[in-house]
Design a protein around this nucleic acid. Structure first.
Length: 980
RNA sequence: GCUCGAAUGGUGGAAUUGGUAGACACGAGGGACUUAAAAUCCCUUGGCCAGUGAUGGCUGUACGGGUUCGAUUCCCGUUUCGAGCACCA
């Protein structure tokens, strides 16, 4: 019987749908397991073979867990909002909802062919009102919350109001945009609008005027993770810094918890490290410096942040960020012109300029700061190497021990005072945090309260200085984070609308029971000419508070009808809590029910690309922690284990055209000509040999092409590149499924290499996986009857597929499923099976599928050689392969007489006893060189073995005339004899 | 510059707590079957050397050292590649 994968796979695709094989419900009787893939953005290009890699890996795990008795949640959905759909809409005028729908259908069609065990009844789409209802709801909750540092959690804003009414800002320890100070009386005296403005300083979702990454080409602001090297991640357009009023999420409030949480989850070290870098915790001190301006000590002061408080005696100048508000205050009259010129220069430079050429630039402000430890006057400079957004936007410069300060000091000829014994700072600064401190204070100088660090190690000195700063009220010990609040507004159409309207210029939340606020229709998707977002084009986009519904803009009277927010939410809004929604996708009363949350808890295994390390994976951890504080999610960390699948790169093929001709020369001969390499569609190349007819038909200009062949073939060159349309190297999974079947595709993608590693796709190797499945199939469909046939009858059989040596027939169309004899399996057969059970079980647990495929191949070959036709062996084999190749497994399972799906079978139990040998081969080595192996009884003890070795019984030839110094016996492995 | 990870045949990659390096597959070469092709099956395949041959010897996991009876594995140093962060004070 032939392995007809097309029919088999079609049959089971239909059967799975009809029988709802993959539908899952909460079941208190069984332990849960939650497997999740990062849901795809349905792009117009469809899936290529790289996309399913992670889905296949997680599907194998999901199926395996199900076979082990777990109730497995394995959902799929679509991250449907996003820029490309909208860009397409701008170009074509087609509504993004329509193109998105089309793309989703295409994705679904492709996914369905690969045999995933997704429960499609739980599908979510971020662009559907029933889904973004809860994105809007979460946003409103963030608006209605502040972050309490003392209790380390989000709290309702009402609690903060209570605090203000009682004691103003006294004893307040909360996350805030800037430090405010007022009394309870002052608070009560404020108008409603003023109070609202104050509260904005504390809300977790707040409207803030901040420097944002503005991308003029895209007409929108971008989050930090969407900007790479000063250009937009999508499109590569320049990004400029601009001050704008935007919705922000106070992610920074959660910085420490985001950092601590990393210790509790099972992610790769490199990914955790990436997040640690992104969060960028640094411990240091803030110190206050008084200002002396134009020779007069003023009451002005400013604060700097430093991690090297110990270097306070080496400070020779101060530097302010050009954007700092202090610049205006501290510039003296005579320096005004120079400073203005410098600021104008800085303003012209984009983020990108700053990164690409790091010139040392700066200007003196005219003012001096006073070193709080020594009373020395220190000039205050302004330079772009100090960033406004980090710390306080001002630093104390210690040129001897900071390379940036050093470069600045050299350039402007400022003094350099070394503080570490033995450090040579004549050529470069000594940045390392090691050594013994000296010059603190410098000889002949004195410091406040006789403070000195001389003789201490740097580490001790840092601690001592911090303690001194705190006790003498010169500043405070402070932890700084690089992590900034997330900008949450986008000036785009295709995103979640904010459930917000404006009254007296202050944002108001539309009532919770009126959610979701649906995205309105617009005529034009481009941002308006006035710079307003596309929602400014919507005619019906005003909020009627009396009717609690959206009404026409013309009705705005600012009494009952108010304008709605025009921005939309960014891409990460919808993807930040989708894993929670899968637990209870159709709930219209809540994001999810408590029961669903309690049962499914969090994602046990999350699979996706590492490109989301500083975006999605930070935002959803933040989002989940917020929901955890609210009591909506019972787990603080959303993704317990995370596996990053590597990218599958394309393998491009090239043809070589001789310059100025239409003649193409084969790879091996190209050096004899002056040629231009051209990408050629990999789908008309097989094993690097070009299909010439297909090539001529590919493009009209090649119809008359001529070829210089080698060995009658046209051989193409190749290179590994990103898989993309423009390189003609996109391999479509549909084609592979059509040609080899989904099971082969699944097996081959897993066999390609370790799941985490990037690797090029090479269709050539796929034959091996397909051949294996055929062999596996033939284990079951074979030829008991053949033994009964006479050789003459065998010869007469039409297919004549005879292996002459073994007299065994394969692929014989008349044969039935093996006549499973009921004999006890032999020792060898059981050994093959249990070796496989052990290997496959371990591999799946460790996520290293690439090595279990060979194990299957070896077992199959062994069992074929043993002519094993025993149910006790073959039945567990089907279960073992079911996670990898579900279609063929189902077919064989049914053929073996089962009426239920193989998905509900039991994973075979491994038994050590079948692998225990009667004899153990011990390798014998002399002086570390392995010579040969000798069989010992398995129960021989070390003393017996050593006696045999010393008695020269094992090895007379090698030991002749030598004195045995030492015999080392490694249990069940090796005897090592050391001799002279 | 800092942090993390990696380096094994022509290729993708195996190798348990340190114990016969190169599993398995691709590619390549040879053979069987076939009018032919496809399909299938069998053999060879890290390098060098010796032998008619079975086989044997040397060498070999980026490079240089070290620990060990024994190192792809552990330690120190170097090089290269990948990833992340980056005027972050």
């Amino acid at each position: 019987m032939e392995y007809n994968f097309r029919e088999i796979e079609k049959k089971w695709r239909q059967r799975w749908v009809a029988q709802q094989t993959y539908k899952v419900t909460e079941d208190a009787q069984r332990p849960k397991f939650y497997v999740l893939n990062m849901f795809p953005y349905p792009s117009g290009a469809g899936l290529h073979v790289g996309h399913p890699l992670g889905y296949i890996a997680s599907d194998i795990y999901a199926r395996y867990k199900r076979l082990r008795g777990y109730n497995v949640l394995n959902p799929m959905g679509y991250d449907a909002y996003g820029l490309p759909a909208e860009q397409y809409a701008i170009q074509t005028g087609q509504h993004p909802a329509i193109t998105t729908e089309e793309n989703i259908n295409r994705y679904r069609e492709q996914l369905d062919k690969i045999g995933f065990s997704f429960d499609w009844s739980r599908e979510v789409r971020t662009c559907e009102p029933g889904y973004y209802h809860w994105t809007q709801w979460a946003f409103q909750k963030m608006f209605g919350s502040f972050y309490c540092n003392k209790c380390q959690s989000a709290q309702p804003i009402e609690k903060l109001v209570e605090h203000f009414e009682k004691e103003g800002t006294a004893n307040l320890d909360v996350a805030q945009s800037e430090e405010l100070s007022f009394t309870a009386d002052e608070w009560r005296a404020k108008s409603d609008v003023e109070q609202q403005q104050v509260l904005m300083n504390y809300r977790i979702a707040y409207l803030g005027e901040t420097m944002v990454n503005w991308c003029p080409e895209l007409g929108t602001v971008l989050a930090n993770d969407e900007v790479i090297d000063g250009v937009s991640a999508r499109g590569g357009f320049p990004v400029v810094q601009k001050r704008m009023k935007q919705w922000c999420l106070r992610v920074s409030a959660y910085a420490q918890r985001l950092l601590d949480g990393l210790e509790t989850i099972d992610w790769t070290e490199s990914l955790k490290e990436t997040q640690r870098n992104w969060i960028g915790r640094s411990e240091g001190a803030e110190m206050v410096f008084q200002v002396k301006s134009e020779g007069v000590e003023s009451d002005k002061s400013f604060t700097i942040f430093t991690t090297r408080a110990d270097t306070i005696f080496g400070v020779t100048f101060m530097v302010l960020a050009p954007e700092s508000e202090l610049v205006q205050q501290l510039t003296t009259a005579e320096q005004q012109t120079a400073v203005s010129e410098y600021l104008a220069y800085v303003k012209k430079r984009t983020e990108r300029d700053r990164i690409s050429d790091r010139k040392v630039t700066g200007v003196f402000s005219g003012s001096y700061a006073i070193n709080p430890f020594t009373g020395e006057e220190i000039p205050i400079w302004i330079s772009e190497y100090v960033l406004a957004g980090y710390g306080t936007g001002a630093i104390m410069a210690v040129p001897a021990h900071d390379s940036r300060d050093y470069a600045f000091a050299k350039h402007f000829n400022l003094p350099i005072v070394p503080l570490i014994e033995g450090a040579d700072v004549s050529e470069e600064s000594f940045d390392a945090k090691e050594g013994i401190v000296m010059n603190s204070p410098a000889a002949g100088k004195s410091a406040l309260d006789g403070f000195s660090l001389n003789g201490k190690t740097v580490k001790e000195a840092i601690a001592a200085t911090k303690a001194f700063v705190a006790s003498h009220h010169l500043g405070r010990v402070k932890v700084n984070y690089r992590l900034r609040d997330a900008i949450f507004s986008r000036q785009r159409y295709w995103g979640e609308p904010f459930p917000v309207y404006y009254k007296d210029g202050m944002p108001q939340m539309i009532p919770e029971e009126c959610l979701p606020l649906q995205l309105p229709e617009v005529d034009k998707f481009l941002p308006t000419e006035t710079g307003e977002p596309p929602l400014g084009n919507a005619r019906k986009w005003a909020w009627d508070t009396s009717k609690c519904q959206v009404v026409d803009c013309s009705a705005i009277d600012n009494e009952t009808v108010f304008p709605l927010e025009l921005n939309t939410m960014p891409g990460f809004a919808g993807s930040s809590a989708y894993y929670l929604r899968y637990m209870d996708p159709n709930n219209d009363q809540a994001l999810l029910s408590t029961e669903a949350d309690q049962y499914w808890q969090n994602v046990d295994l999350y699979v996706g690309g590492s490109e989301h390390a500083t975006g999605h994976l930070i935002y959803s951890r933040f989002w989940n922690k917020f929901l955890f504080d609210l009591g909506v999610s019972c787990k603080e960390e959303p993704f317990q284990k995370l596996v990053n699948q590597g990218m599958i790169q394309g393998r491009s093929n090239f043809v070589y055209r001789i310059k100025d001709t239409n003649t193409f020369v084969s790879y091996g001969l190209k050096d004899q000509y002056d040629v231009t390499p051209l990408h050629v569609d990999v789908n008309i190349v097989s094993a690097d040999v070009l299909d010439i007819e297909a090539f001529k038909a590919w493009r009209p200009e090649y119809a008359t092409a001529e070829f210089i062949l080698e060995d009658g073939k046209y051989v193409c060159g190749w290179a590994v590149e990103k898989m993309s349309k423009s390189m003609f190297n996109v391999v479509n999974p549909d084609m592979i499924v059509e040609k080899f079947g989904a099971d082969t595709l699944r097996l081959y993608e897993m066999f390609l290499g370790p799941i985490e590693q990037a690797k090029p796709w090479d269709t050539n190797g796929i034959d091996g996986s397909h051949r294996f499945l055929k062999k596996f199939w033939n284990l079951y469909w074979d030829s008991q009857q053949v033994d009964k046939l006479t050789s003459q009858q065998v010869d007469e059989l039409t297919s004549k597929q005879v292996d002459t040596q073994n007299k065994q027939l394969v692929n014989l169309s008349t044969c039935q499923l093996v006549n499973l004899n009921v004999d006890e399996p032999t020792k060898d057969e059981l050994k093959s099976l249990h070796k496989l059970i052990k290997k496959v079980t371990e591999d799946i647990e460790n996520f290293s599928y690439n090595t279990s495929i060979p194990a299957f191949m070896i077992a199959t070959n062994e069992l074929t050689a043993l002519k094993c036709h025993k149910r006790a062996i073959l039945e567990p084999m089907v279960v073992l392969i079911a996670p990898f190749a579900p279609h063929i497994a189902e077919e064989l399972w049914e053929a073996l007489g089962h009426t239920t799906s193989v998905c509900d079978a039991q994973w075979p139990v491994f038994e050590e006893k079948y692998l225990v040998e009667d004899t153990v081969k011990m390798m014998v080595a002399f002086n570390g060189k392995t010579r040969f192996g000798i069989d010992f009884p398995a129960d021989a003890d070390n003393a017996t073995i050593e006696a045999a070795a010393r008695g020269h019984e094992l090895t007379p030839k090698y030991l002749e005339g030598k004195q045995i110094m030492k015999v080392i016996i490694v249990p069940k492995r090796m005897i090592n004899i050391v001799c002279k």
